[in-house]
Amino acid sequence: MSLVMDILTICAVSAGALFFLAGTVGLLRFPDTLTRLHALTKVDNLGLGLIVLGLLPQTSSVLFAVKLVFVWLLVQLSGAVVTQLIAGAVRHHGADG
């Protein structure tokens, strides 16, 4: 059982880390601000999400697990709002902000 869990953890955390890499590459390569913003949201959603998913089997208590999910939700919320705000600013002032 614990082996399955460990494999799950390894897969999910690695995948999450790869999404961080992918998001970063996107930030580097994408041509304009809005598409770079898009890459950033992928990091927020999937990168952190997968890492949290991978960490869940390793937690020792329920409270711990709840906190993990809570952190993820919090980042979702603030990430979404921040991208909205940035996008709005870009629309108002052009990419130079």
Partner: peptide, 14 residues
């Protein structure tokens, strides 16, 4: 661009 700098903060936050 300032917006890009802000994205840096967001990226590092996450």
């Amino acid at each position: 661009a300032d917006v890009d700098r802000l994205m840096a903060v967001q990226l590092l936050g996450t």
